[in-house]
Amino acid sequence: MLAGIFLFPNFISPFSENEIDQHILFQFRIPKTLTAFFAGMALSVSGFILQQLFKNNLAGPYILGVSSGASFAVGLVIIGSSSIPMLNSGISISLAGFLGAFGILMLILTVSSRYGYGAIILLFGVIIGQLTGALQGLLSYIAIPTDLKNFTLWSMGSFNQVIGADLVILMIATLGGLVWSFFMMPSLSVMLLGDDVSRTLGVNTRSISMQLLACTGLLTGIATAYCGPVAFIGMAIPNAVRLLFKTSNFKHLLILNAVLGSCMALVSDIISSLPIANINIPINVTTALIGGPFIIYILLKNRH
């Protein structure tokens, strides 16, 4: 899969030929593929965790406004960086992404603990998304043109241009979040029995929930910081995994989500970079084109 990807996107690019091919391969293809791989993994895993925590199959980082929260924080940093140059680093951007995502998650947790898990959570997430969108609009109104262009391009979502230290941060954060959440899977699965019963089984539900939210904040925040708010992967993949594998072994589910999320990101990336009409389709357009019909299918299937 992986090898096929960085050879395929546009025409061919052999292993070692002239310098230009080498440059393309190492500066663009390989980083881009790795970025897609890890961002896809991060988003689908956070989607899976959020769906379990909020007991709602339509939850996901994008719908719950977590991606928007991260975008807004990153927007602040990108646009602020022209006046405060110190801010313009991979670390500050990823930190902003994490804090933005985690902040929204905490808000949602507060709402859900008071008002329940159902439609209200989705509604709340959508409204938060709109709110942060509006704030972003304000932000771009006052921004200077070059920053604005950077920010607009970023907000369309892309796996391009994550190289060097940024790529390393993305990889470490994703793997870290994955391993961290992996160890909480047994407790999370016991929580299927409900809050009271799982507490009498010795699960510290509050601590587990907080840790898992921190994980999803990390995963979504970092992926969003570098790739923009990528839609649909986080919601579609966990549902696909459930339907395909019909298991509730959470350790397996987590791994399957990671793998399938990566696959969907890679496939979307290939489709995006296919030379159709001489333009590169933004990644969000592709994920929506694949993810949209799939979610409609899920909705209809669950409604029988």
């Binding site: 047994p186 699965s189 089984l201 699960v203 959470f250 350790k251 397996h252």
Partner: peptide, 9 residues
């Protein structure tokens, strides 16, 4: 069996 540390799956 979760309280007894068994691998539940």
């Amino acid at each position: 069996r979760f309280p007894f540390g068994q691998k539940i799956w």
